[in-house]
Structures are given as structure tokens and as C-alpha cells.
Design a binder for these strands. Structure first.
Lengths: 117, 117
DNA sequence: ATAAATACCTAGGATATCTAGGTATGCGTT
DNA sequence: AACGCATACCTAGATATCCTAGGTATTTAT
């Protein structure tokens, strides 16, 4: 059977766009934010996160830039682009449609059960 | 970016278990039911559906059996097993948890926005 | 007779995520 | 000063899921 992580498929990009749209962030921070905000549900692996960020930057949805903090430590901050915001809106609608469709199967609304009492 | 179908990953099995738990069905019927009940959202491909049914039967969550109708046409009807029902309950809870976690990222509940009016 | 719908099946390709490794800096403790 | 841990980034290859694109065969409508 599918594991918990499989539900992520197709949603990681949207999750990242949504989080970063609220505030620019760097990779390590994103992992902690997703963990914290989801109350421990989302535990992103580095092998999932970093390739996803690179993919989104390459697609022009995020813009990354290096910042040096303290005396040499490097961080790559990602900010959402205009294109990214447009895609985020689309993806959010797509997610809502999908959720609605899933619920139509899980909880079928049969006409005969909606007869007025 | 991820396509619509990617959202299916990890959910097809749950979708099938849920549908078949309501009534035993055969493959072709399942395709039409998913399409109809979801108002055209779910258009399962045969290359998706049949391997999934075989996977679920092999895992003991569905039980299939052949029935001959009219003069030779064969249909394979699938019914959910007891094990399948247990898994369905688990997967449904898992789906709800996932939905809740997604929404915590999409619509973060900041404490300061919940101040009493 | 022919086309379309019904009804099943599978091999191989594409792609996303995870596993499991790697490098390097900063900080706290002993 | 040495050590471990947290921070901070990265990638190659394995795995698994779904789709593409093909196939066979029967029934029904034109």
C-alpha cells in the first residue's frame, strides 16, 4: 500500500511555493518551518527538498540568491517570482478540485438520500 | 510542474477501496463510476486501473472472481475483503491527516490572528 | 459489413521521491 | 584542543507509480 510520503507526490512544489510566498526562506529553514507548522507531519528529506528547490528555480517560479552570514556560513534564500505566484494560484485551485473529487468518491451524494424530510 | 495525475499517486488504492467497499464492481464499471461520480474529474486509464486492481488483490485487500454474462462475455468482479476494510479505515484517516497538514501550510493559523474580537 | 462500445490485459517509459552518502562551518562542552 | 551536534548545502542511484501505447475478443448499433 501507499505510504504516507506518497501523498506528497505532486504536492511538494505547491507546498514549497505556498510557504515561500509568505516569506523568503532558505533550505534548512524550510525544513524546520514545514515540520513546525504541520505539527511534525511534514519531515522533508534533504534528497527531496533540495532537488525540488532547484527544479522550481530552473522553472522560474523561485529566485534563489546566496547570502553570507557571520563569517563564512552560506545560505541560499529563495523568493517566489511573479510567475511563481501565478502558478501557485493555479495549483491551489487544482488542489481544491482534487480534494472535492476525492470526497465525491469517499462520501457519494446520492440524490435519493437528499430527499426533503 | 506536477500534473493533475500526480495528485493521484498514493491515492488510487484508497479511491478504489472506497468505491468497491460500497458495492462489488468490475473494471470497466469502475472506470465509468469514477468518471461519473467525480463529475468527469477522474478519467482512469486502463494501464492505471488494471495493474492497481491486481496489486490490491495480490495484497489481499480485494477479492476478484470471474462471472460470465450473456453468451461468453467475461467480467471480473472485485469485492473488498475484511482486511481491505481495515486498511480503508486507516487510509481514510491518513488522508484526513494529510489534508489537515496541507492546510496548515496553505492557511497558517497564527496565534495573533485568533485574538478574540 | 463496419464501427463503436464493452471488457480485459501488459511491457516499457517517464518522473518524483527517498536512501544514503558526501562536504563544510559554528558552537558548546569537557 | 578535541569532540559532537546542529547548521547548511549538495548529488547519484534505487524504487515505485502512473501513463503511453499497444494488444485480444465480444456485443450492439448503423
Amino acid at each position: 500500500m501507499a505510504a504516507r510520503q506518497d501523498l506528497l507526490k505532486g504536492n511538494i512544489d505547491t507546498l514549497l511555493l505556498s510557504l515561500i510566498s509568505q516569506q523568503p526562506m532558505y533550505g534548512y529553514q524550510i525544513m524546520r518551518e514545514l515540520d513546525g507548522r504541520s505539527q511534525g507531519y511534514f519531515k522533508f528529506k534533504e534528497g527531496t527538498l533540495y532537488p525540488a528547490l532547484h527544479r522550481l528555480e530552473k522553472a522560474g517560479l523561485l529566485q534563489g540568491n546566496w547570502r553570507t552570514i557571520t563569517s563564512g556560513r552560506q545560505r541560499r534564500y529563495y523568493a517566489i517570482t511573479e510567475k511563481g505566484r501565478r502558478i501557485l494560484v493555479e495549483q491551489t485551485e487544482r488542489w481544491q478540485d482534487f480534494f472535492a473529487a476525492m470526497n465525491l468518491i469517499f462520501r457519494p451524494q446520492k440524490p435519493e438520500t437528499q430527499v426533503s424530510k
